[in-house]
Amino acid sequence: MRRAAVSLLLAPLLLTPALAGCTSGAPGELDLKVGGPFGARPTIVFPDAKPMAGLQVDELAAGKGEPLRADDVAIVQYTAHVWDGRDNRLVDSSFNRGTPAAFPMGELLPGLERALKGRRVGSRVIAAIPPGDGFGANPPQGVADGEELFYVVDILGAHRKGASVESRGGTLAGVRVGGGARPALAVPAGPPPATFAAKVLARGDGRAARAGQLVVTQYEAAVWSRRSVFDATWTGGGPKAFKLGDGSVIKAWDKALDGVPVGSRVLMIVPPAYGYGRAGHPEYGIKSSDTLVFVVDLIAAY
């Protein structure tokens, strides 16, 4: 469960004319160069000119994996620049942070959505995005109104809305989890345990998740005292991705998922000290005294 909101929203190859194969606008003789292999930080040499008008897109490497569909969560490495024909400054880069990013399809900038939809895992896509297909009149810090963006995006993975781990279900401290593709939490009456506990209900055979990695999950969460679910990705739009070990998820997740192989289903009992602490989580009606219950499917780790 995320603690706070996430930030902004990826052999040398030569592109001349610039952004050939664009989705709109005529290609121009702009000597734009994007170098480096898929999955590695790209080198970009901008021309001394602004891009052509309109959204322009090209695929520099064609992947052979699954195509991105509406509602998928794409896992990407990316870099984003302002393309102004002067300093072409860097705005954001997952390569620099050392961890891939999650791009939920259907929630991206319009130009980025059009550039990535239908592209296959393993593809490197570049896009020059005009303001009307980008942040519009309300850009975030680091981007000024009216500035053009340039993205390089490497698509590492795609995860479907219904992704799940098959399990026979199980119990922990009286909490029951049903089996099947989508688990169902049943919290018993009475007071919760005072200590944190976690149990792997189904152990996968993938790589072990480690601190510093981006993990892709499905989960269902309940407040013990109310015996009711307050959040569930299976009904909330699809998988969610979080980075382990950097404070972006509650302490329980860092503790329970570290070392667990991909393909596992994990059940957690989370007292306040391992959850939202004294602050609680007012958005979900969680008080400082509330013990929580999570069942988490570990779909992937990057």
Rank of each mutant, 00 (worst) to 15 (best):
A4D: 13
L8Q: 04
L9Q: 12
L10C: 09
L13N: 14
T16K: 13
P17D: 04
P17G: 07
A20H: 11
A20G: 10
C22I: 12
C22M: 11
G25P: 10
E29M: 08
E29T: 07
L30P: 02
L30E: 11
D31A: 15
D31W: 13
K33H: 15
G36L: 11
P37A: 11
P47D: 07
V57C: 02
E59P: 00
L60R: 12
L60I: 02
A61G: 05
A61I: 04
P67W: 02
R69E: 05
A74M: 00
I75Y: 10
V76Y: 08
Y78M: 15
A80N: 05
G85H: 10
N88A: 09
N88M: 09
R89H: 10
V91E: 01
D92M: 14
F95Q: 07
R97W: 06
G98Y: 10
T99K: 10
P104Q: 02
M105K: 00
L108T: 11
L109D: 14
L116W: 03
L116Y: 02
K117Q: 05
R119Y: 00
G122C: 05
S123M: 02
V125D: 09
P130N: 05
P130W: 02
G134I: 05
G134F: 02
Q141R: 12
G146Q: 08
E147M: 14
E148D: 15
E148G: 08
E148A: 13
F150S: 04
Y151M: 14
L156F: 07
A158W: 00
K161W: 02
E166A: 15
G169H: 04
L172P: 02
L172R: 00
A173Q: 07
G174F: 03
R182P: 01
L185V: 01
A186G: 10
V187C: 12
A189V: 13
G190W: 04
P191F: 00
P191Y: 01
P192A: 08
P192Y: 06
A194Q: 08
T195F: 03
F196P: 04
A197H: 00
A197S: 03
K199C: 08
G204E: 04
G206Y: 12
A208D: 10
Q213H: 11
Q213E: 15
L214D: 03
V215G: 06
Q218E: 13
V223P: 11
D231G: 01
A232N: 13
G238P: 09
G238C: 06
P239N: 04
K240W: 13
K243W: 05
G245C: 07
G247A: 02
I250T: 04
K255W: 08
V262T: 15
S264N: 12
S264R: 05
S264L: 11
R265N: 01
R265F: 04
M268S: 06
V270I: 10
P271D: 06
Y274L: 08
G275N: 09
Y276P: 03
P282I: 07
S289E: 12
D290M: 08
L292Q: 13
V295S: 04
L298G: 11
I299T: 10
A300Y: 07
A300Q: 10
